[in-house]
Simulated assay, not measured.
Amino acid sequence: MNIPAPIKTILQQLPELPPTLALVTALNLLRKQLWPEDDFAWLTGRSVRLEIADLGRGVTFGFDGQRFVTAEQPADVVFAAALADYWIIARRQEDPDTLFFQRRLTISGDTELGLQLKNLMDATDFEPLLQHLPQGLRSRLVI
């Protein structure tokens, strides 16, 4: 899944706050469905950055003890991968470990926090959420 050049150019020029707000809103809305047993105490006061390597952009967020929030401070841990590789992880077509050892997913910063997040990504079944996407969009996003 390559990002078409004109769309990539536009995305690279947009501010990061709107997609970060969309992400934290989605995480807060879906938290109990995706992770009903996790209180995220281990993430409280920490920040995470998800970099989209093929855009040179990303989102930085944290957890304030009650909800996911946008974060402006430097991230404690940074995940970097191509947009297509994040999609592969969400579709469970590859696990994060495989992409990590293929150097398609990099993790830098706090390694303990990175490991917890990688394990969370690996254990999360995003498929029920993907089912809510319109069929036309889902079929175009299948890799």
Rank of each mutant, 00 (worst) to 15 (best):
N2Q: 13
N2D: 11
I3R: 00
I3G: 00
P4C: 04
A5C: 06
P6Y: 09
P6F: 11
K8D: 02
I10F: 11
I10S: 03
L11R: 01
Q12C: 13
Q12S: 10
Q12T: 10
Q13P: 02
L14S: 04
L14R: 06
L14H: 03
E16M: 12
L17K: 12
L17W: 09
P18Y: 05
P19Q: 08
T20R: 00
L21C: 00
L23H: 02
V24G: 03
V24M: 08
A26M: 14
L29D: 11
L29I: 10
L30M: 09
L30Q: 12
R31A: 11
K32L: 12
Q33C: 01
Q33D: 11
Q33A: 09
L34G: 00
P36N: 01
P36T: 03
D39P: 04
D39M: 02
A41N: 12
A41T: 13
A41Y: 05
A41V: 09
L43E: 02
G45Q: 04
G45D: 04
S47N: 04
V48Y: 01
R49W: 06
R49M: 12
E51N: 13
I52K: 00
A53P: 00
D54N: 10
L55C: 02
G56I: 09
G56T: 14
R57F: 05
T60Y: 05
G62Q: 01
G62K: 00
F63S: 00
Q66D: 14
F68M: 03
F68T: 01
V69T: 15
E72C: 11
E72L: 14
Q73F: 03
Q73V: 11
D76T: 14
V77M: 10
V77F: 04
V78K: 06
V78C: 15
F79N: 04
F79R: 06
F79Q: 05
A81Y: 02
A82H: 14
L83N: 02
A84K: 13
A84C: 07
D85R: 05
W87K: 05
A90Y: 04
R91A: 07
R92F: 08
Q93M: 13
P96D: 05
P96M: 06
T98G: 06
T98V: 14
L99M: 08
L99C: 08
F100P: 08
F100Q: 07
Q102G: 07
Q102W: 09
R103S: 13
R103M: 15
L105I: 13
L105S: 07
T106S: 15
T106C: 12
S108C: 06
S108K: 12
G109S: 13
D110G: 09
T111I: 15
G114F: 07
G114K: 06
L115I: 14
Q116W: 10
Q116H: 14
L117N: 04
K118M: 10
L120C: 10
L120E: 07
M121V: 14
D122C: 08
D122S: 13
T124V: 12
D125E: 14
D125M: 10
D125A: 13
F126L: 10
E127N: 11
L129K: 04
L129Q: 15
L130R: 02
Q131N: 15
H132F: 12
H132M: 13
P134Y: 02
Q135F: 10
G136H: 08
G136W: 08
G136Y: 06
L137F: 07
L137K: 06
R138T: 09
S139G: 07
S139T: 15
S139H: 11
L141D: 01
L141F: 01
I143G: 15
I143K: 15
